[in-house]
Design a protein around this nucleic acid. Structure first.
Lengths: 240, 240
DNA sequence: CCCAATTTGTGCGTATGTATT
DNA sequence: TAATACATACGCACAAATTGG
């Protein structure tokens, strides 16, 4: 029982992607959409607002809703998207090697790296992502074990988010992220043996991920090969 | 004549920043806020939705709206924020040197760098941003002259967006952005003389900026010193 | 375990304002 | 000027989640 406005959102999203509404064309007016879907204009407006947020359309007062060029191979890291989901969307030739999976407890010492307060029981996971056979990303994760139970190497090699959302029924909600360029460590060189000597930094995306009830449960540090890194984003100017 | 829901949004935003509602506390219920502001619940909900989008609160069905830790010195590049606005928000010791400002016309040849189709009349602008006296960012802009008129070095040294929005009455609306790590050119070394020899890449943020009527008018290439680059973002997981 | 109160989520209808053509 | 389209706001009803008794 998905909400009506979500259905309408999805309908237009797929129609736009399939170019039933090509770039620069206009959607039908809100009133027409409402009568087509036999719903109120308010419901249509909710759907269109989401399409606008996500960069599919631009609403124009008095004119209509215009379809934007959708930047095709988008979202490599934007939003909160897992590697497995990207792999599907972009049809990448990608696989994952689990380098380390162990239980540990955070301490005052490692608070900085784990991202958790002392004495939290954690999983520590390190994975290398290979794209077209090339080691391209090193992912290091810390999960709160009071939230994530029974993490196995098999799950870690597949989709952890799929497991958390579907099997453990968690609702992943939001994250604070930061992107920096960090110096390459000896461990990085070992895990990315093809990395040219002249490179001295990896692009690091650090995320602190929370559930819908605001529980903080995951700290991820993703280090990307600089020559393979690309991060696309759609952004809107904030109304004053 | 700002919209009522925007006023309510702003009221709560400042209250949260000033910690009248501290992190982890709950806002009053939507019904209470509505009666406080003598407005409908619908208006309150619009305001709260925007607060949630922007990472100030987390709404929880059946519980209420909880205030999130707001990542303090946030938004260095996220969204569509001008350097001058960042400078104000972050109280940076920053200034700008205009290196180049000239008129030119795009050709089929330079289409890639200018970001515009051939024969578009453009401004070409290069600026260096100094933070605490250190050359930290090289900004290269191309503006469509049919949109941006009378660009001067004085305006370019100050806030172009302030000029465009307030003087030229343009509504800057959205951008497609990409972040990559690019090899350092000779020109980069000249403009950033303090850049250590061992660094081989700058972090490049490329933006294509559009007005509310979808007119494409600005292409910006910002190259950042890798040791000074940090890009923070709040992001929400997409609902399926 | 269930019920009741509270709170947010969704949807409908209506009215009025404002921008575009 | 008139018609069309989006923007804002109010009110109501019921559904669904949470909490506490």
């Amino acid at each position: 029982m998905t909400a009506r406005y979500i259905e309408i959102y999805q309908q237009f999203k797929t129609d736009i992607i399939q170019e039933k509404y090509p770039a620069n064309s206009f959607l039908p007016s809100e009133a027409k959409i409402a009568s087509q879907f036999s719903c109120s204009r308010d419901t249509v407006r909710k759907a269109l607002s989401h399409l606008e947020e996500d960069g599919f359309i631009q609403k124009q007062h008095g004119r209509g809703s215009q379809v934007l060029q959708h930047s095709l191979v988008n979202f490599p890291i934007s939003g909160l998207t897992s590697f497995q989901e990207l792999k599907q969307v972009q049809r990448l030739d990608a696989n994952t090697k689990v380098v380390l999976l162990k239980r540990l407890q955070s301490t005052a010492m490692n608070r900085q790296t784990t991202g958790f307060p002392a004495k939290t029981k954690l999983y520590h996971l390190i994975r290398v992502r290979y794209i077209n056979g090339l080691a391209s990303v090193i992912d290091e994760d810390y999960f709160d074990r009071s939230v994530v139970h029974n993490l196995t190497a098999e799950i870690a090699a597949g989709s952890i988010y799929e497991y958390l959302e579907n099997t453990e029924k968690l609702t992943i909600s939001y994250a604070e992220k930061s992107v920096t360029a960090e110096l390459i460590s000896k461990q990085d060189r070992l895990l990315m043996p093809d990395l040219p000597e002249r490179e001295n930094r990896l692009i690091q995306v650090e995320s602190r991920v929370h559930l819908a009830d605001t529980t903080y449960f995951q700290h991820t540090i993703s280090r990307h090969r600089p020559d393979k890194f690309q991060f696309n984003e759609f952004s809107r100017r904030q109304k004053k």
